[in-house]
Nucleic acid binder design. Sequence first.
RNA 1: GGGCGGUUAGCUCAGCUGGUUUAGAGCAUUUGCCUUACAAGCAAGGGGUCAUAGGUUCGAACCCUAUACUGCCCACCA
Length: 895
Amino acid sequence: MELSAKYNPKDIEDKWYAHWEEKKYFHSEPDDREKFSIVIPPPNVTGILHMGHMLNNTIQDVLTRKARLEGKNACWVPGTDHASIATEAKVVRWLREQGIKKSDITREEFLNYAWKWTDKYGGIILEQLKKLGASCDWQRTAFTMDATRYPMVIKAFVDLHKKGKLYRDYRMVNWDVEAKTVLSNEEVIHGEENAQLYYINYKLVGAKQKGIVIATQRPETIFADVAVAVNPNDDRFKKLIGRKVLIPLINRAIPIIADTYVDIDFGTGALKITPAHDVNDYEIGKKFNLPIIDILNDDGTLNHECNFAPLIGKERFAARKEMKKLLTEAGTLIKIQDYKTNIGRSERTNSVVEPKLSLQWYVDMQQLAAPALEAVETDAIAFYPRNYKNIYRHWMSNIRDWCISRQLWWGHRVPAWYFGEEIFVAETPEDALAQAKQKFGKHLTIQDLHQDEDVLDTWFSSWLWPMSVFEPKVDTCLPADIIRNPKSDIDYYYPTDVLVTGPDIIFLWVARMAMAGFEWKHERPFKEVYFTGLVRDKMRRKMSKSLGNSPDALKLIEDFGADGVRFGMLSCSPAGGDLLFDEKLCEQGRNFCNKLWNALRLIKGWETADIPQPEMNALAYRWLDEKSSVVLEKLEEDFKQFRLSEVLMDLYKFIWDDYCSWYLEMIKPAYGAPIDKKTLQDTEQIMQRFMVMLHPFMPFITEELWNKLGGVEATGKDCCVASFPKSKNPIANNQQTTAYVQQVEQLKDIITQIRDVRNQKGIKMKEALAIKVADTENARQLLSIAGGKELVMKLANLSNLDFAEEEVKNSTAFISGTDKFFVILTEVIDAVAERENILKELTYQRGFLKSVEIKLSNDRFVSNAPAQVLDNERKKRDDAQSRIAILEESLASLN
RNA sequence: GGGCGGUUAGCUCAGCUGGUUUAGAGCAUUUGCCUUACAAGCAAGGGGUCAUAGGUUCGAACCCUAUACUGCCCACCA
């Protein structure tokens, strides 16, 4: 077999992905096996793959592939979200580029365009996931607005309405002037921004000059003022309460009122009250029964209500700028002060959110929240990392009702029909009509009813995701009916095993899925939630388009291979911690692939011969095999805790160091010499095993090597569906390694120390060395392990290794454990340097001994510490004493 | 303003119930090597007062208190 010196991922990745798909390894149907189900957090239908997706989906793939290798019926459901506001914004922009204004076309025409757009760009992201190796069940690909999901969403709405958990109300909302829709609280991002505080004088009615100065950040809203409020305890203004002031420019008179809400120390202590454009002012307005003057249009321009012609039709920020000039000219602007304040912006359009009074649909969250909160509190839904419980608890116990209507066209249209003041909520127009007829008589036709123009919040469909993706039949998908359909997929796959998502959507999505799950399935939607960290660049900045610091995901795969990129994403993303992405990590992954590839090349290059297995090879194999069980034990433990980067790093170190650097060097035959069949076979098998262990993380190269190593011939299966190895020797409590492994580790230590001596003395590896070891029982036992002595001689290149009766002249010594080794030197040693080294070591050992002795001479320690700890301390003392004795001997022999 | 985390090597992080040598890993770094699998490599090394100050304990990176710095979540301060 000819193999190139470098691993080339491009040669094999597409081939294996196609092979897996053809074999339908990723497709799942209910059967007798234990299931493992996971649903993808659906990316926006028109989105493209970014680093966050890469991390998130790599993690899901690792978990899915691991479950599949464990023999579970693994089902990872992919899909996309219609992303109402984001997609609509994109479509509007796209139409504008073609000279089409949304306002000029009908709803139907717009939706046609939107579907066209979705068909064209939708699902690109799913194709990109395939490049990454994602083992999704593509036959189950779902879309939040497809024919199966649509009726479920509508039924959920109708069901909530029936139960009285849904209502319509007129209240202050967050208004996105760009998208011209309401937003839920969770879709508003607050951040500190630089702003200016305008100090404006309102003249007192009946006074010539005197007035009251208010401070506002939004001077353009003074036209909507209906009062000025002061604190009743503020001595400066007590006399003025009840009098009236004039709004500058329009000279409308408004009263001065008193309320303790006003902070005496902020600004001037006087607050303008603008009920239509501020949440607090609205409350005060209600309390004092003040009128409401709304001066803003839906698009953020000033309307006729402002009663000031020069600004009508002007956009709010343009108006603000002009106000500066106008107020200055009117001599009523006292000063402008810079200050920092919290500004809310729309998550999707980034425009400053406007408080606005509006009639919208709300979900009453109080009852829905209760079981969802309890599930997390009791770990029925377990969060990783755990501390997200706190954040979740806080939000859930202070939950506010959810505004679910949106003034958009792209989405699920609100299933409510109006006849005059009357509302009929129904799954279909026919149903609504039937209800209307019952109330108002048979003469009504569908034309008499008018359907609500609004659509539902995207999250109102995604909160059903873990249920809706497992419901295959449209006509049986009434949420309540799901329970009555025992043959349905949902009984097999629901609840899902784990949800992998970012903490940024814990309220938008995770909490709401939990609520929906209990509301309609009376069961949690997932058993565990693993929150990934945020992907940042190496300078800790968030990845963003505007910063241009987000690498092109596909380019990375191109450069480093999918396995290399997966390694890079995972190797440095501790559970829940942020991932500081650096291309170097992918490079490390690529290098690891190359290492694996070359291990294969080495093995494949060996000729076999009918010779008995050398003892040394048997030793090497037993050591590696036992150690691999230790690695497996830890790996399983770490998997349970989602410590995936830990697992990957342990495998990396084990395969690179123990397998490649040590084991392969141990068994490697001399140049041109053959290897025995047993060793070769063992080596191929154990490497096959390692490929399975590594497969969840690096699926492509492991599949390739598994095949080349004969894994298919041995098991009849591809690596993708092989059996995950199990630890053979469960390690006893507190016992990190077996005694055998420990002994081999000491042999390795001896080899390393000899190599160190070579380095220090400048003795080349080619030059064979003679070693003597002080004759102790321990040394005899160590070197009597079958193959042990040969191993040291081979890897350290020794000409001789035997026991010394006394101090060896002209040698340099080292200590391994408590055994003393003499490296015999041909050149005369530098006694001064040697002496210095020994003294340095002696100082360390004596200091160490002293610290142990202090402990042991403390009566309270001896009487209180557990026996095991005490024994250990005594052994530490004895070992240190042995080493000190050895060092002193060496010192004496130098004199 | 309220709440929750974090601070361990140059960088990123482990360290899980306080006791396995005087704290580990990867990367980076230093030295020597183009040694017939791999220079995308091999061998060996250096590097830390565990943020600071107290306390509890026979024993503290780990528990407690305070301080400093830092991150995140929530909240209507004009």
